[in-house]
């Protein structure tokens, strides 16, 4: 197979295992490309991509922009903070205005869950979801799985625990879909208040004891506590959270095996993981960032190949 089954990447929920395999295979080639002296290919020289960020982002935006530029696409950037959205313009109006400038693809981050799906029903351009509220962040999940595959050889059969604020995390949901699709065993671990009530219906297990979760897993994906999405207090204090759900070197060394530590960033050093863990050989956090560019190049390339001339 050399074609994706979808025209948009709205979430991992909407793609197949074969799609993931194709994206990874293509990303392998782009990873070789971005390690060349000249890190650019001309494939998308006649494609224009709009990066619409209705919510703050640093690494995802940089990573997408770099991926687009390395494919030779023309790129326009939009951030809601400095736009007419503040003047009351609707999402469809904003996007249609941008599309009338002949844009072929839209990469969008939006605070509302389902914004990407909504948009895909109203406009013609190909859409990549770069995070929609607490719903999905598909490219992050893809690069996480890609990084696991790179480090451990395969995702199938591996035990992965996602630790932290599952309730507010789009990274957690996309990762659960992606990992389950590829045959991994998934547990979530965190304070009871930050674990969604019906999470078991996704086929994952809940473990409230961090030590037990780490003893079980091959990979621990440490999530950030998303204070900005919390309207009430979910745990007594950051200090107490760290005591129960923070990973430090002493805890890692006390396990009878080596596990891989991942983090989607930005890290709150000293909260979910300590600096000596984040900078240790266990952590593949910077590999995740590098793989992010290759995986996003693959996603954009494969979606662009489906845009009609």
């Amino acid at each position: 197979m050399s074609e994706l089954s979808v025209n948009h990447l709205l979430g991992i929920k909407y793609i197949t295992e074969a799609d993931i395999e194709l994206i990874f295979k293509t990303a392998d080639h782009f990873k070789e490309v971005i390690n060349r002296p000249i890190k650019k290919v001309p494939s998308l020289r006649d494609i224009t991509i709009a990066n619409l960020f209705f919510e703050n982002s640093t690494r995802t935006k940089l990573s997408f922009e770099l991926a687009e530029k390395r494919l030779s696409a023309d790129v326009i950037n939009f951030s809601a903070a400095a736009s007419s959205v503040k003047k009351g313009e609707t999402l469809i109006d904003t996007v249609n205005n941008i599309l009338s400038m002949k844009v072929d693809m839209v990469v969008m981050r939006h605070p509302n869950p389902g914004a990407g799906v909504f948009l895909s029903k109203h406009i013609d351009a190909s859409i990549v979801n770069a995070g929609d509220g607490a719903h999905e962040h598909p490219t992050q999940a893809l690069l996480d799985s890609y990084s696991i595959r790179e480090r451990l050889g395969d995702v199938a059969g591996k035990n992965v625990v996602i630790v932290g604020d599952i309730l507010h995390s789009r990274v957690a949901l996309s990762n659960i879909y992606a990992l389950k699709l590829q045959g991994a065993n998934v547990k979530v671990c965190g304070p009871k208040t930050l674990i969604p009530k019906h999470i078991k219906s996704l086929g994952v297990e809940v473990e409230l004891d961090l030590r037990k979760a780490l003893e079980w897993c091959d990979v621990a994906n440490m999530l950030r506590v998303q204070n900005e999405r919390m309207d009430i207090s979910y745990f007594p204090s950051t200090r107490e959270y760290t005591q129960q759900y923070g990973v430090d070197k002493t805890l890692l060394d006390s396990l009878d095996k080596e596990i891989v530590i991942m983090h989607p960033g930005p890290i709150n050093r000293g909260v979910e993981i300590t600096s000596d863990v984040a900078d240790s050989d266990h952590a593949i956090i910077l590999d995740q960032v590098q793989n992010g560019v290759a995986v996003r190049m693959a996603v954009i390339y494969l979606l662009a190949s489906k845009i009609k001339q």
Binding site: S43, Y301, S305
Partner: peptide, 10 residues
């Protein structure tokens, strides 16, 4: 490999 350099992409 010349796939990404072909002039018939799309």
């Amino acid at each position: 490999d010349i796939t990404f350099y072909r002039d018939d992409f799309r």
